[in-house]
Each structure stands twice: as structure tokens, then as C-alpha cells.
Design a protein around this nucleic acid. Sequence first.
DNA 1: GCCACATATCGTCGAATGACGATGGGGACT
DNA 2: AGTCCCCATCGTCATTCGACGATATGTGGC
Lengths: 117, 117
Amino acid sequence: MRLAATEQRTCAPPLPAEETPDLRPVEGPQADEELASFARALGHPARVQIMRLLVRREGCVCGDIVDELPLAQSTVSQHLKVLKDAGLIRGEIDGPRTCYCVEPRALRRFKALTGSL
Amino acid sequence: MRLAATEQRTCAPPLPAEETPDLRPVEGPQADEELASFARALGHPARVQIMRLLVRREGCVCGDIVDELPLAQSTVSQHLKVLKDAGLIRGEIDGPRTCYCVEPRALRRFKALTGSL
DNA sequence: GCCACATATCGTCGAATGACGATGGGGACT
DNA sequence: AGTCCCCATCGTCATTCGACGATATGTGGC
């Protein structure tokens, strides 16, 4: 059965101790590619909205995302795939459903890259 | 004749006193659209590179950008247009050439929006 | 095994993107 | 005027994107 929306499930222990600072440079061709890749993933309002959803409930939601967006389930699934391919979120199959949550490292990396502008 | 690459021309006085803080909210549907729009504009490595160029020499370069990128002049012009339409840069015709520079307000706004994630 | 449910993937379509060469227009210099 | 030079715009083409419905896959409960 479906969890109530207020309940949260964490994809995996966030491991707050694992705050290893990112050593990769924030400039150079590599970094440009990286920033462009993140930016492209966020270059659609629906995907921004999804990110916001996942950040707000820091646990991970699954199909609730579909209920929140005015889009077909297949479309939402595609957007989730884009975000996942960009490394911004992670998805774990949890029983019959899939649980998504943000990838904090990637999000930090993205902010670091934008900050370098 | 062309200015040496080291010379700089500012598009317009940056007016550092004009640091009016942005009052618009960093969340909500409006903000999502805005963030997505900025992100889409930066969603291409060439455009990231252009932004970097314009930030580095805080004065504005014009056709020098074309020399820096491995792209045709028309393609660069298109990328510049995308950035300009997104509001991230400004272009002023300066005699026979055009002078681009970053729009600091927009850049700050973009960082604020990404920071809200 | 079977059924119901939650997701992912496929196929398709129209629209947008990214690249280029070619064209055009506006200054500057002779 | 005529001629460069710089840049924007146009036309074209291949590719990608975004959306959807339809279909597959996979799990848990009966």
C-alpha cells in the first residue's frame, strides 16, 4: 500500500559525514561540459519542479511526483530519466515502486560550477 | 582597426552602486520558469564558454569570441542571441562592431535561483 | 498462477535546436 | 562612391526534445 504523503523514506542514509569536498576544478573545458550538462537537465520547468519536490521532502518520493505534475506518467518518467542521467538524482527500486531522491554531491557540484561564473 | 585583445571596453558603466537586492521570490512557478530559462540558455558548452569569456574580461569582447571558439561566425552569433534573449548578456553596437558583456543582475539572479535548490 | 498496480520503455509526432553557408546591411576608410 | 569589415539574419538540414498513448516489465497479494 501507498505511504501517506507525509511519511518519508530515505533512499539511502545521507551519510552526512561523507562531506568530502569536491576536488575537481570548476573551470576548463571539462567543467564547461559538466556545467552545460547540469544546466540542460534543469532547462525545463517540469524538471526544476521535480528537483524542488525532491529537495523539499528530503526523503524520496516516487510516483507521488506524477500526481503533482500536470503531465502523463510516461512524460514524468522521461523527465526523471533525464535528471538521473545527469546525475542529479538517484532512483532505487523499493518493492513495487521506485524511490527517487536528490544526489547531494551533484547538487553541490552544480552550485559550485555556477558559482564560478 | 581592431583593438588589441588586452584592451577592454565596457559596454556601459557597471554602476556598482546599483546593487539593489532582488526582491522577487526564488520559489514558485514563476521562479521555476525563470530558473529553467536561465538553465536552458547555459545548457550548451559553447554558451558556458562564452559566459566565461565575458566574465573573465569584465569589459566586453565582440568578435573576438568567434576567434576563441571552433565554430562558424553565424553559429556564435546564434549562441549570443540565445544568451541575450535569456537576459544573461547585453549587446551594444559600437561602431562597426558589437560589444557584449554580462548582465550582472541576471547572473546574480541565476545564482540565487540555483542556490534555492 | 493470476491479477492489480507502479514504472519503465517503445513508437510516433510536431516543434525546437544546432550547425553551416550564403546573404544583407551598416559603419569606416580611401 | 566604392570597398572592406563585422555582424545579424535567412534558409536548410540533421538531430534532439517533449509530449502522449500503448506496451512491456516487475512486484506483491490473492
